[in-house]
Each structure stands twice: as C-alpha cells, then as structure tokens.
Nucleic acid binder design. Structure first.
Length: 136
DNA sequence: GCCAACGTTGGC
DNA sequence: GCCAACGTTGGC
C-alpha cells in the first residue's frame, strides 16, 4: 500500500465532483515526474486530493481503482489512472498547516508545489489524517 | 494580477 | 551538451 497526493484545481475538477461522479479518469498529467509517479500506483493505493489555487487545502481521500494506462486524451506517451472517492476529510488540512508542521513542511507538495502527483510516506499520511480529524 | 520557481525548447 | 528564452503553475 502506497500513499499519494493528487493536485487539482477545484474550479476545473474538485473533490466534490469526484464524490458526485463516483469515479473519474485522472488524465491530463503532462509532467514526466508526475507521470512516473502515476505509473507506480497500485490498485487500492490511497490518495489525498489537494485543491490548488482555491482553498489550498487537502480536502479528501480517494483510492486507485485502475492502474496506469494510456491517457485517452493524447497519442503521446502519457498515462492516466482511475480514481474513486473514499471520504472527505472532516476538517480540510490547509497548506499553512502543512508548512507549519516540522515534518510535513518537507513533503513534495510543499517543497515543489508544481508537481501534480507526489508520493507520501505512511507517517506523513497518518499525520495529515490526524490534522484532518479523520479516520480511514 | 504579479512574480518566483520550475520545466521545456531550441539555437549554438 | 549547454544555457538563454520562453511558457506554465501556483502562492501570495
């Protein structure tokens, strides 16, 4: 089991949209590092959904329901995965909270805010759950 | 809306 | 293969 953070702009596709849709194709990643992370995802891996620009907070939890396959939107060598919602965080965890945490301030979401798919250790994952006052 | 940080592109 | 120029992203 691995853990990840997926970034999305909520005015394009929000966690609420994911809850409504029950499942979505996570496509459009056009960054090599992010693509490689997508390809390392395994079935059942847990992901946090982070809202960039608007909110700037981790709002919910999802899971990988289909591992990497050819991005349907392009013929070029990019990947997509399928994501299903698990549950919303009881309390969203803001970027500010992440930055002020001695451990979490070093996660790639904070250090490299442009990376749209980034890995998370179990420890970091648990800490964020705790900050979000949420149990899986 | 601005700008810093980062990634990509293309000329040499 | 280097690096300047450019485009994009996202925090502020």
């Amino acid at each position: 089991m691995q853990y990840w953070i997926l970034k999305s702009e909520p005015d394009v596709y929000s966690f609420q949209d994911l809850q409504r849709d029950k499942k979505t194709v996570w496509e459009g990643v056009r960054n090599y590092q992010a693509r490689n992370n997508l390809r390392e995802m395994e079935l059942g891996d847990t992901v946090f959904i982070y809202h960039s620009n608007i909110g700037k907070e981790i709002v919910g939890i999802g899971k990988v329901v289909k591992t990497a396959y050819q991005d349907p939107k392009t013929k070029e060598d990019w990947s997509a995965v399928d994501i299903a919602p698990v549950k919303a965080l009881k309390t969203p965890v803001t970027l500010e909270q992440l930055k002020s945490d001695a451990v979490l301030k070093n996660i790639s979401l904070v250090k490299n805010s442009r990376l749209s798919v980034s890995p998370l250790s179990k420890k970091d994952f648990d800490k964020i759950l705790q900050l979000g006052q949420t149990n899986l």
